[in-house]
């Protein structure tokens, strides 16, 4: 198994390099240089800037420099925010993004899984219908709509419910809106997934066996059913991280949170190519590593997984 994961790790590194290369190619194939602005800069100034950022070097040398920087974990300077390094931006952006992301994750786990289980155990009862109705809304309504609704209802639009600040993370209450909006989709998805997986497991023969052997009902559920029901949920962790990541772009924009997603959107609006490139590579690397970790966790939970012939 160790061999398999070493192989996976090497593949992950190669994938990150391929993605960095593709991002580099894409960003350098954009017509006009990075200093092409609405207000045209004087020719001389552009030249100075290009020299300063080595943009006058041949493309292949720029690529070499970029990749070399990548190995030193150096993503280069921003072209728009003069004097700011991409690394600094990411370092600044990580804490708020990580905080709301982590809280969202906790919320998804502590609410989504129990809701799914309850819904499955009370199949076709009122509680099941309510939970499923909410979850269906949650997976279909985009997070930015949910976020704006939260602001409207709980941050001023309805005077009686004016409980939350409209933006920022300055007070603990400020976390509620962004975390809820960020978690909404995945929370609903996990609820639905847990429910259907639980229903599937409850129909399995081994549950009947456990009952036929007189195992107490709560133990049949808590031990035999839930562990099996959670296996498909683990496979969703990868897509869930992706959903939280991309969700954070809009959530941070709506709630004015100075996180990495907010910087990413800002860099897109400003056409700040090195920042776009840097954050993309950062996101990709983060995602790939997380998926790798999920696979390790998966192998620990499900003894049937064998790693002799790659993923099945």
């Amino acid at each position: 198994m160790a061999k398999y994961f070493i192989k996976r790790f090497v593949v992950a590194i190669i994938t990150i390099l391929i993605i960095a290369t593709l991002t580099f190619v894409m960003m350098h194939s954009i017509p006009g240089g990075p200093f092409t602005r609405e207000k045209a800069l004087p020719e001389a100034q552009i030249q100075i800037l290009e020299e300063k950022y080595h943009l006058d070097d041949p493309l292949i040398k720029q690529y070499g420099d970029y990749m070399a920087g990548l190995f030193r974990l150096d993503l280069g300077p921003s072209f728009v925010k003069i004097g700011v390094e991409v690394n600094e931006l990411i370092a600044l952006g990580i804490p708020p993004t990580a905080k709301i992301g982590l809280f969202a994750l906790i919320l998804i786990v502590i609410l989504g899984i129990p809701f799914g289980i309850i819904s499955a155990l009370k199949q076709n009862k009122p509680i099941d219908y309510i939970v499923m109705f909410m979850a269906t809304l949650g997976v279909t309504i985009p997070s930015f709509v949910v976020a704006t609704l939260i602001i409207f209802v709980f941050a001023g639009g309805v005077p009686a419910l004016n409980w939350l600040p409209t933006f920022g993370l300055t007070s603990p209450l400020g976390y509620i809106g962004p975390v809820l909006a960020l978690a909404g989709y995945s929370l609903s998805f996990v609820t639905r997934l847990t429910r259907s997986s639980m229903l599937e497991v409850l129909r399995q023969d081994y549950i009947r066996t456990a009952r036929a052997n007189g195992i107490r009902e709560y133990k049949v559920m808590a031990k035999h059913a839930i562990k099996n029901a959670l296996i498909p949920v683990i496979t969703y962790i990868g897509p869930m991280i992706a959903a939280i990541m991309t969700g954070s772009f809009v959530i941070e924009k709506i709630f004015h949170i100075p996180g990495i997603g907010g910087y990413f959107i800002e860099s897109i609006t400003n056409r700040d190519y090195t920042v776009i490139m840097g954050i993309t590579v950062f996101y990709a690397a983060f995602y790939i590593i997380m998926v790798l970790l999920v696979d390790v966790a998966y192998a620990l939970v499900d003894p049937r997984i064998k790693f002799t012939k790659g993923k099945s």
Partner: peptide, 18 residues
């Protein structure tokens, strides 16, 4: 697999910027 190894929305954003 390589395309799928990053969130697809990220790739779309890059294409839109490009």
């Amino acid at each position: 697999d390589v395309i799928n190894s990053v969130p697809l929305v990220l790739i779309i954003i890059l294409l839109m910027v490009m």
